[in-house]
Measured scan of single mutants.
Amino acid sequence: QETIEVEDEEEARRVAKELRKKGYEVKIERRGNKWHVHRT
């Protein structure tokens, strides 16, 4: 599992979309004022 930390929701969604295109399962999680995209 890989976690990518980004600054805002828009970027989290963009990253998640790219990963989904490559066939990964992803989960977006908010952590305080950061966003984490988990590749599962």
Rank of each mutant, 00 (worst) to 15 (best):
N33T: 06
T3D: 02
R30M: 14
V26Q: 02
R30W: 06
K34L: 04
R39A: 13
A16Y: 02
E25I: 07
K22L: 04
K17Q: 14
E7R: 15
Y24I: 10
T40G: 07
H36S: 04
K17D: 03
V6T: 05
R39P: 13
I28C: 10
R14E: 02
G23K: 01
Q1V: 09
R13C: 01
K21G: 15
E25F: 01
L19Y: 01
L19S: 09
K27I: 02
T40C: 03
A16W: 03
K21R: 07
E10P: 10
R31P: 03
R13G: 07
K17W: 05
V6R: 13
N33L: 10
H38R: 10
R14G: 09
E11H: 13
R13A: 01
L19C: 06
E10R: 13
A12I: 01
R20S: 08
V37S: 00
A12Q: 02
V15R: 05
N33G: 12
V26M: 05
I28W: 09
K21Q: 11
K27F: 01
V6K: 05
L19P: 11
K17E: 08
Q1G: 11
V26T: 09
L19R: 03
E18Q: 02
D8S: 14
E2A: 10
E9N: 08
E29S: 10
R31L: 08
I28P: 03
E5F: 12
H36R: 07
E5R: 11
W35E: 02
T3V: 10
I4P: 01
V6C: 08
H38Y: 07
V6L: 13
E2S: 11
E11K: 01
R30S: 06
I28S: 08
V26K: 00
R39Q: 10
E18S: 09
V37D: 00
R14V: 07
H36E: 09
K17P: 10
R31Q: 07
E29D: 10
E5K: 13
I28G: 01
E18D: 06
K17R: 10
E11I: 15
R30P: 08
H38L: 09
Y24T: 06
V26S: 12
E2D: 12
R20D: 07
D8M: 15
E5Y: 07
A16K: 03
T3W: 06
R14L: 03
E10D: 12
D8W: 05
T40I: 04
E25A: 06
A12T: 01
N33P: 04
A12D: 00
K27V: 07
I4F: 08
Y24N: 10
V37K: 00
V37C: 07
I28H: 10
E2H: 05
R30T: 09
Q1T: 02
N33I: 00
R31E: 10
E5V: 14
V26A: 12
R31N: 15
Y24K: 06
K34A: 11
E25P: 09
T3A: 11
E10Y: 12
R14N: 01
E25M: 09
R31H: 03
V26L: 05
R20Q: 10
K27G: 08
E25T: 14
I28L: 12
R14I: 05
